[in-house]
Structures are given as structure tokens and as C-alpha cells.
């Protein structure tokens, strides 16, 4: 489903973020990408949701080279991929409901569709009773759940989570991870970038280790040190 073929990424100032990365992820997989800060985890994910383009090699999604997607078609491609970040990226002046519905508004869904779909997804993440709250009235874990609900609203094929537990206490972190596992069980591919050892060890799923932009190990059922 997702293939990185000899991918390299060099940022201006000759900073090598990724070097000769080869990686294949199948549909329905749960993959944790681990490594220290600056190892290239975020860059690896950004290439997948086409926020960055590789300097060399190619990234393929369902056999299609992302570099061949025209700029104006990129938004439609991005609807295949839900994204979750460490800083939640919520709009503080919008309620929980509006933060999620926003993702449907921008693609032209009707108010009726929005009123049906948003409560459903908020129910899945356990925030049905907090729809009218604002982000600053929620805990960190709850905010991340809103962000997850927004990522799921398009029913994407892949969820990309970049350090989603980075700002959360262990309990909330585990709540989010459990939700990701639940989503994965329902058939969505999940790629989780993290450096949370405890989370990775508990998951006992595939682990890809990045070091200085290179993949140094790839274990099917791995622990933090596989």
C-alpha cells in the first residue's frame, strides 16, 4: 500500500533528514516509527502526506508515485490520510463540534451530513458529551481525541500520528494509543511516530527504528529495542 523506495531528503543547508530509506507498509498494518529527535521520523511522515517532496527516490501510495500528483489534486489525495500531531492543531475559537465539522465543511458536505457524521465520530473517541466545549476547557488527552476525531472524519485509509502522546501524561497517552489500536482493528492503517518506550513495548506491533535518517532495524513484533 505504501512504499518508500530509496528515499532521500536533504533540507537547505545540506541537512540530511533521510538517506536511502526503503520501507513497505501493508494495508491494515500498525507501524511504530521510533528514533531520537532529529532522526527523521517527522520527515518520513511528511513525505507521506505530501507536505514535503523527497530529494531522491520515490514514495508510492497504492502504486502511485506521489511526485506525479498535480498540485491541485493534492488536497484530494490528502483526504486519504488523517493526521494527528503532538500540538493537536485545534482552532481555539471553535468548539469541539466545529473543530471536527470544519474538516467536512471545507470539502463541501451539507449541514445535514455534518450533523449526522460529527456526533458519530465524537462518540467513537468518547467525547459525545463535550461537543460544545472549547479546546481550552479540555484536558490534553481530550484535545488529542478531538484531533483524532477530526483525522478520522474522512474515514481515511491511513492515520499518521506524529508524537501524539508527546504532551500527555501516561494515562492519557495510553487512552490515545488504545484508540489508535481500536481504529487499526477496524481496518485503518496506522503509522505512529514516537519515542515513548513504554508505549512501543506495550503495543507489541511492528517497529521501524530510524537513526540519523536511516532505517537501522525493522521488527515484525518488536519492542523499543528489537
Amino acid at each position: 500500500m505504501i512504499r518508500y523506495e530509496n528515499v532521500g531528503k536533504i533540507f537547505s543547508g545540506d541537512f540530511v533528514a533521510l538517506e536511502d530509506v526503503n520501507l513497505q507498509i501493508e494495508k491494515g498494518e500498525f507501524v511504530s516509527v521510533i528514533g531520537h529527535s532529529g532522526a527523521g521520523k517527522s520527515t518520513l511522515l511528511k513525505l507521506l502526506y505530501a507536505e514535503e517532496q523527497p530529494t531522491s527516490g520515490q514514495v508510492l501510495f497504492d502504486g502511485r508515485d506521489l511526485a506525479t500528483i498535480k498540485k491541485r489534486h493534492l488536497p484530494y489525495y490528502r483526504r486519504n490520510i488523517g493526521t494527528v500531531f503532538q500540538d493537536f492543531k485545534l482552532l481555539s475559537e471553535k468548539t469541539v463540534f466545529r473543530n471536527v465539522s470544519y474538516a467536512l465543511e471545507v470539502i463541501g458536505k451539507t449541514s445535514q451530513e455534518i450533523n449526522e457524521e460529527v456526533p458519530e465520530i465524537l462518540d467513537i473517541v468518547g467525547l459525545a458529551d463535550k461537543m460544545e466545549k472549547y479546546p481550552n476547557q479540555l484536558s490534553g488527552g481530550e484535545r488529542q481525541k478531538v484531533s483524532l476525531a477530526r483525522a478520522l472524519i474522512h474515514r481515511p485509509a491511513v492515520i499518521v500520528a506524529d508524537e501524539p502522546t508527546g504532551n500527555l501524561d501516561p494515562n492519557s497517552s495510553w487512552d490515545i494509543i488504545k484508540l489508535l489500536v481500536k481504529i487499526n482493528d477496524l481496518g485503518t492503517t496506522v503509522i505512529l511516530a514516537t519515542h515513548d518506550r513504554e508505549v512501543v513495548d506495550k503495543l507489541n506491533k511492528r517497529v521501524v527504528v530510524l537513526e540519523k535518517g536511516k532505517i537501522v532495524s525493522d521488527c515484525k513484533k518488536g519492542k523499543y529495542v528489537c
Partner: peptide, 16 residues
């Protein structure tokens, strides 16, 4: 600025 970033991530078209 942040709104644009989010719009891009949730697949809003460039025109939108």
C-alpha cells in the same frame, strides 16, 4: 496561519 495549515491537512482544495 494555523487555520491554513489545518485546512491543508484536512484536504481543503487550494481554491477553498
Amino acid at each position: 496561519k494555523q487555520e491554513f495549515e489545518i485546512m491543508r491537512l484536512v484536504g481543503a482544495s487550494n481554491m477553498y
